[in-house]
Amino acid sequence: MNIFRILGDVSHLLAMIILLVKIWRSKSCAGISGKSQILFALVFTTRYLDLFTIFISVYNTVMKVIFLVCAYITVYMIYMKFHKTFDREHDSFRLEFLLVPVTGLSFLENHSFTPLEILWTFSIYLESVAILPQLFMISKTGEAETITTHYLFFLGLYRALYLANWIWRYHTENFYDQIAVVSGVVQTIFYCDFFYLYVTKVLKGKKLSLP
């Protein structure tokens, strides 16, 4: 466990909490893509099946359970509790465009051809693209609430910190996981454009709106 990994996990957790607090306080999930949140719930579900098969550490188990619970509460808030505020019209990304290639790729390129390993691989590939419906929604409406941009910032920061973690682990432990690293790089690239807007607009007190 290194500092990048801990900070990465903390910003991941922080992102999910920010989103939940935003929805809970405003009693609205306007501007949030329900599809992205369903994908994240699917990511955690397929990745953390090893909760039943292998024990890694108390930290690992507790964080996995928290992530799963947060993801499902978020989906519940969007589709059940505050469904009237959900902007279904603009959340129009076609999920099959992500799910079909990701499923195919996880069968083709994995560490071993076993059900758990294929599901883990599926979750890694899916996570790298799961934010696309949310980014698509923002590009469609042309704006995002400031708190939503904080959520996205911490979600992107988490993946960027994991990249630092992998570089660290490669040098100190000679550990690397090619599937995770390649997907992590792809995932981080998706956030670059957003990071630029976040720094140039949101941090200067302006609302994120696209021209």
Binding site: R5, D9, H12, H111, F175, D177
Partner: peptide, 10 residues
């Protein structure tokens, strides 16, 4: 080396 025995990252 690549690991295939469990994934310790979240």
């Amino acid at each position: 080396q690549e690991t295939t025995e469990g994934h310790d990252e979240l």
